[in-house]
Design a protein around this nucleic acid. Structure first.
Lengths: 198, 198
DNA sequence: CCGATTCTGCACTGTTCGATCCAAAACCAT
DNA sequence: ATGGTTTTGGATCGAACAGTGCAGAATCGG
């Protein structure tokens, strides 16, 4: 063994993730990353090999964290299934409002990355696709549960409704980045629920 | 008068717009723009002053074109109002499927720009906001019409439903960029309509 | 305390970036 | 044709980019 790291890898990843989240991949330079982490470029490259790899690590961590939070909420048996969906949407709205800067939400790193990179980076596209599949599966499970409870009255199949919810969530995120205020975002969320409980 | 342009300004703007649309603002270099337009950098700068200005011109043209297409459709009195909304969503799905490359949609330049630039470029944010207001107004008008016809049965106010539709459209666009196929996009569109006609 | 190993700071690489300069070519009105 | 004006291509600018090499500092097992 030899000289140990002076930084915590996960803490650095969180900081880096935030920078990419706020400004996107292309607009964030390795210098920017040094500035926000307080590390030198050597240390960064020594630990993460390249800007692209660092981004992939940060994206993976983001997806992991967010998916865990969502799963925890969606699998909470103490609430009816439809109520869990309502709370999920409410939390997304809350997050967008809370993280807003200059009246604009931050959006979601996976949505932002889908828009910026999925079309020209196959590896990123693959990561996003796996994450999407997991999220859709989680949503579908809750929707089926809600249907058994009698709360989800829409005749559409659960996969379609899951797709719909996922699209609405992306739409809420983009709307927040476009400057929509809390009331507008809540209206979108409430209307989306109407489609499930019609 | 003196030597005239050898290129058509609008044709160049269309080509440039397409490049920005496909790869984003940051990832498109002025060299790339020269390549796709066949022009030299001098000509580009002489006609459009800067990369940023060129982008703004291309974005304005995109928003103008798209808004005109949408307005034409939404104001078509030969169809019931709700039917017009259905056709609008169908066209968006069609476009995403038609313009797809490697199984991924192109998305929408205004959505892409909202995600990439709205948070850190106030002038772009202003442009997008004006465009959004116009689109929301158009949607609201059709929704109110549909309500008078008795087809829009949702009790939510028209502004909220317009916000909802706009968010769903963005969600469809992002989903297409994420690799969703035609069936998935159509499911999202159909489910969204359920919320208006519940 | 020492030797092996790893990390860190700084200088530096070559490349590409957006943007500019200038001379030559092209055009129009007269 | 000629003069005035604009466009065009090519060279070039300084700055910023992602990434590297290296010397020395730091830390471990022994």
């Amino acid at each position: 063994m030899a000289r140990p790291r002076t930084f915590d890898e996960d803490r650095v990843l969180d900081t880096v993730m935030r920078a990419f989240w706020e400004n996107g991949y292309e607009a964030t330079s390795t210098r920017d990353l040094c500035e926000v982490t307080g590390l030198d470029r050597s240390s960064l490259y020594n630990a993460f090999t390249s800007k692209g790899e660092l981004f992939r690590r940060a994206l993976a961590r983001y997806a992991e964290t967010m998916n865990a939070r969502q799963a925890e909420l969606l699998e909470d048996r103490s609430r009816p299934a439809v109520e869990r969906i309502r709370v999920l949407l409410a939390r997304i709205v809350d997050d967008e409002v809370a993280l807003a800067r200059d009246g604009r939400g931050l959006g979601c790193l996976t949505v932002n990355t889908t828009v910026e990179l999925a079309g020209r980076d196959p590896e990123i596209a693959r990561m996003l696709e796996r994450d999407l599949d997991r999220r859709l599966a989680g949503l579908r499970a809750v929707i089926e549960e809600g249907r058994r409870d009698g709360d989800v009255t829409s005749p559409r199949d659960a996969a379609a409704l899951a797709r719909f919810l996922n699209a609405v969530i992306a739409g809420i995120r983009v709307s927040a980045q476009g400057g929509a205020d809390r009331a507008a975002l809540e209206a979108v969320a409430a209307t989306a629920l109407d489609a499930l409980t019609r």
